[in-house]
Write a protein that binds this DNA or RNA. Structure first.
Lengths: 251, 251
DNA sequence: TGGCCATAGTGGTCGGACCACATCGATGGC
DNA sequence: GCCATCGATGTGGTCCGACCACTATGGCCA
């Protein structure tokens, strides 16, 4: 797309300049990823903004469309970009939910002792979030929490229970007023992750205990008692954590 | 490339079977990503194991090598796979560090009010990690922490200070005995993230205060006092958090 | 005026070609 | 006999060009 090729392989002026500042570090695709990330963090690309076409981007960086597509795909999976077939490529809103969606992958692929550690992280965050929620929760949101609590107790279908269980904790996390924390907890409770752990846990007849713990959490929220809420949430997650610890590392 | 085309577009037998179980949900690349993720979570692919070649994988899923490469690239960026030029594609160890490396991207691209939330998450995790470290840290690791503390105080080069600052907290996180938490904190303290926030913070002459806070954290660790350690760490991160809050959302 | 449709532009997929690098075995010298 | 060297082979990395699927736009027709 440029005139005056400056080298035997036909690099454009722009490419030569880029090569001078960043001499072949890693693959061209990796460089393209860093480049686009850089454009965003430097403010050249705003959230929601549309990018040039794949073909144009590739030309600008002096690489092939294939390599550029790999870069775009990677950033898409990371929740940074969003490709709309027939329309164009856009920067996401870059909100917590967008960027932390990949956290689910971590939860799904973690195994062994690391799984216990992940649950420990969740215990720490969940207990704090619940304590914050107790201090800040609004009446209508508290009602929503109660709705999921009763719905959870009204059915025997494990699928439905799990769904309301997730929603129960999600409402609380949002009520804590920290969307980033809520997004992380969401990832740590991703559908497949919970199913993986809870299947075995609930098979040991832990339904009753789970219900009791949920009720305790709700009572603490209704009473606007942060300390009680923290304790209840920590105990709730801690129960599963301890069970999992015994499964993974039988001393 | 196959014989006996079974449809007007020339699908192979394998593709028809796959289509029957997973009817065109999303792009073929996305399907390939899910497929490989599934193979790993189901244990068909072990950590460290080598995968078939790109060409073979593409043939197995009935897609082109280009699409398969995009899938592999995405999983590589996510820290699930590792491609070694000339050798092959391998599953990573799937350890906390591998999978949580992408957390740095989140820290780098988060902005505005979400940045404060991210720092709040760090405060929660860091204070807990420091408390745990106070109870568990070994003498040699404590010595390593002290080394970074003194090195940090011995220089005026901001770059060097930052490096030792990072190492200081990293040693503590590792000493807490939860590699997953350490990996997350690592991501939340990624070089560019810290530089972005720290620059403005330190410009206000916060060096002295930072040193005092670090000293307090170390004293609590040396005294094996978890509560003091938690408080010191929380105050340390909280200082920055408050400053950032005033910068972002001037009420 | 309003809805429909041809069209241009975009991302999605494909196949093939070539290059750069790693690996390993054969070869040759010590 | 042993080890260093050097090829051959196979792998991921890059590029190209073509075509498909979808969207959006604008003009056309009722």
């Amino acid at each position: 797309m440029d005139e005056t090729p400056t080298g035997p392989t036909g690099e454009t002026e722009a490419e030569v300049r880029a090569t001078a500042t960043a001499p072949q570090k890693g693959t061209v695709t990796q460089r393209a990823i860093e480049r686009i990330k850089g454009m965003i963090s430097e403010g050249l690309l705003e959230p929601g903004q549309r990018l040039p076409t794949e073909r144009d981007l590739a030309a600008q960086l002096g690489i092939s469309r294939s390599s550029m597509r790999e870069a775009i795909r990677a950033l898409t999976v990371l929740g940074v970009l969003e490709a709309r077939h027939g329309s164009g490529i856009y920067v996401t809103r870059l909100e917590a939910g967008d960027l932390l969606e990949t956290f689910g992958v971590v939860a799904d692929l973690t195994r062994g002792p690391r799984l216990v550690e992940l649950l420990e992280v969740r215990r720490i965050l969940e207990s704090t979030a619940t304590a914050l929620a107790a201090a800040r929760i609004t009446p209508d949101r508290l009602a929503a929490v109660e709705k999921h609590l009763t719905a959870m107790n009204a059915t025997d279908d494990p699928e439905e229970i799990l769904a309301h269980d997730l929603a129960f904790h999600r409402e609380i996390a949002v009520a804590a007023g920290n969307e980033t924390m809520a997004a992380i907890l969401d990832g740590l409770s991703s559908r497949t992750f919970r199913a993986r752990v809870w299947r075995g846990y609930q098979e040991e007849g832990a339904f009753a205990r789970t219900r009791r713990e949920h009720a305790a959490i709700f009572r603490a929220l209704a009473a606007r008692d942060p300390e009680a809420a923290r304790a209840a949430a920590a105990a709730h997650v801690g129960e599963v954590e301890e069970w999992l610890r015994s499964q993974v590392g039988p001393s």
